[in-house]
């Protein structure tokens, strides 16, 4: 029996258990403080970048998400990679032709931070259609981590979602559904420039509210009612309930416009990217069910 157990573990990916000792208020307070130190500058398109425009961030983000999806990366890898990308661009003007190199490098590092078996440099280069080479990626990696001052363990909205769910008096299976949908919203937010200014805790709270709303879970569960939940979460992250509502509405309208775009360009070649974006988490039907 022991032998069987061993084999089983080797066959599958090992993940750490969620440590309930770390899902407490002290840790949450520290996280709320720490997230400020790893936040990008909101105005880097205006103040730092000369060639890079917001729509290019969208293009590279959509591609990065597609790669993370296809490589079945852990959910956190994509938002973490986007955090690196935004932070790098907050300091360092970059040529447009190197933006994809930066995006690949950010995934490379984020994957190492979060995954048992990280993405390889070679694979990432293939995804750029071999427009970059592994050695360039590795040199860029050194440059990136140096620019980020090796401060790589940035908070992601996912870290906060676990804390929120722990605090919510809701059945475990309901939590699982909320988690899944909220994570989809988080990935969607990471692709959109408008959300750079929101700290991860806000994105996380907004995504949880949007998920609960979209799933109509508030109808027969008092705690999950809109008023109650926004009040609760805004207290947890210590923000104004109106800010949280604004964020959540922004998320909902982003989802709506992404879905609309996906439907409009159904035949055009652009469809692919937009649809994939709505496809986050490979739960397209669920996502649609959320709002429509």
């Amino acid at each position: 029996m022991e032998h069987q157990l061993l084999c089983c573990e080797v066959e599958t990916i090992r993940r750490a258990y969620l440590d309930t000792n770390l899902l407490n208020d002290r840790v949450l307070q520290t996280m709320l403080k720490a997230e400020e130190t790893c936040s990008p500058s909101v105005s880097y398109f205006k103040c730092v970048q000369k060639e890079i425009l917001p729509y290019m961030r969208k293009i590279v983000a959509t591609w990065m998400l597609e790669v993370c999806e296809e490589q079945k990366c852990e959910e956190e890898v994509f938002p973490l990679a986007m955090n690196y990308l935004d932070r790098f661009l907050s300091f360092e003007p970059l040529k447009k032709s190197r933006l994809q190199l930066l995006g690949a490098t950010c995934m490379f590092v984020a994957s190492k931070m979060k995954e048992t078996i990280p993405l390889t440099a070679e694979k990432l280069c293939i995804y750029t259609d071999n427009s970059i080479r592994p050695d360039e990626l590795l040199q860029m990696e050194l440059f990136l981590v140096n620019k980020l001052k090796w401060n790589l363990a940035a908070m992601t909205p996912h870290d906060f979602i676990e804390h929120f769910l722990t605090k919510m008096p809701v059945a475990e299976d309901t939590k699982q559904i909320i988690r899944k949908h909220a994570q989809t919203f988080v990935a969607l937010c990471a692709t959109d420039v408008k959300f750079i200014s929101n700290p991860p805790s806000m994105i996380a709270a907004g995504s949880v509210v949007a998920a609960v709303q979209g799933l109509h879970l508030g109808n027969n569960h008092t705690f999950l009612s809109y008023q109650c939940l926004t009040h609760f979460l805004s207290q947890v992250i210590k923000c104004d309930p109106d800010c949280l509502r604004a964020c959540q509405e922004q998320i909902e309208s982003l989802l709506e416009s992404s879905l609309r775009q996906a439907q409009q360009h159904n035949i055009s070649s652009e469809t692919k990217t937009v649809e994939d974006e709505a496809d986050l988490s490979c739960t397209p039907t669920d996502v649609r069910d959320v709002n429509i």
Binding site: M56, I59, S97, Q100, T128, D129, S131, I132, E136
Partner: peptide, 8 residues
């Protein structure tokens, strides 16, 4: 697998 912004 695509090159997004032209040759490097």
């Amino acid at each position: 697998c695509r090159n997004l912004f032209g040759p490097v």
